[in-house]
Amino acid sequence: MKSINDTLNKIRQNGKKAFVAYITAGDPNLNKTVELVETISEAGADIIELGVPFSDPLADGPTNQKASERALKQGCHLGGVLESVSKIRQKGIETPIVLFSYMNPLFRFGFGELSRRCREVGVNGLLPVDLTPESFLEEERHFKNALEKERIEPIFLMAPTTKTSRWKLIEKETKGFIYYVSRTGTTGVSDKLSEGLLGKLKEVRKVVKKPLIVGFGLSKSEQVKTLAPYCDGIVVGSAIVREIETAKNFKEAKKNTHSLVTKLKESLI
């Protein structure tokens, strides 16, 4: 299993950009998640983000909300997601995996137990969507301690609205990379890059040194091409989830996600 850091450093050294692919775990079910991760890795994803389904995903747009609902109907929960990661590793897939989750399922699982299990099954990082680095350092410091103990990497978001005074704090607390939210809004596909994004990225770049991975709303080759020079990589989520949702059958879902990832990855380089 590769670490997020090594993976991103290598990509940087080669003058390339990272492709991060997001899917919701358990959509359409956990066995298929294992297959989809295999497909997406083969297609060239450098890091995989697995969404832990939650009943109230308030940072997500309709595409990911519905995926979460489908996964929950299948009885998919954090414990099952961890087991599927173990299966992914058993298949010899070494791509770094980050769990994207709302706090409550993590809190309920217990931070100590969660970190241990992440280590055991081969999860590299955790992205708690509704946790700020401030809370991570204060009230939820036992979460931080637990992750540190098991060397699981916390990942924090930075947004266009994030005050300049907090950039350094976010950079300090995030471990694998900074996930830069490319627009103010929820996850979900949009056609255009938001206004002022490239300028913002330039400013951020001057201040933070850790890898900057940009996502939220990306789906098109042109968007990816435009963004690439300004960051270390991109995340594509809803666009992939949408392929899974709209495919006639699972075979087609695999085929379509494969070609989408291949196409966007090519635009990145």
């Binding site: 940072a59 509704d130 700020t132 809370s135 924090f156 266009p160 609205t161 994030t162 939210v181």
Partner: peptide
């Protein structure tokens, strides 16, 4: 406390 996505940090502040 305040458990929010990063985008809301500034408006809440």
């Amino acid at each position: 406390g305040s458990y929010i996505p990063e985008t809301l940090s500034a408006p809440i502040e």
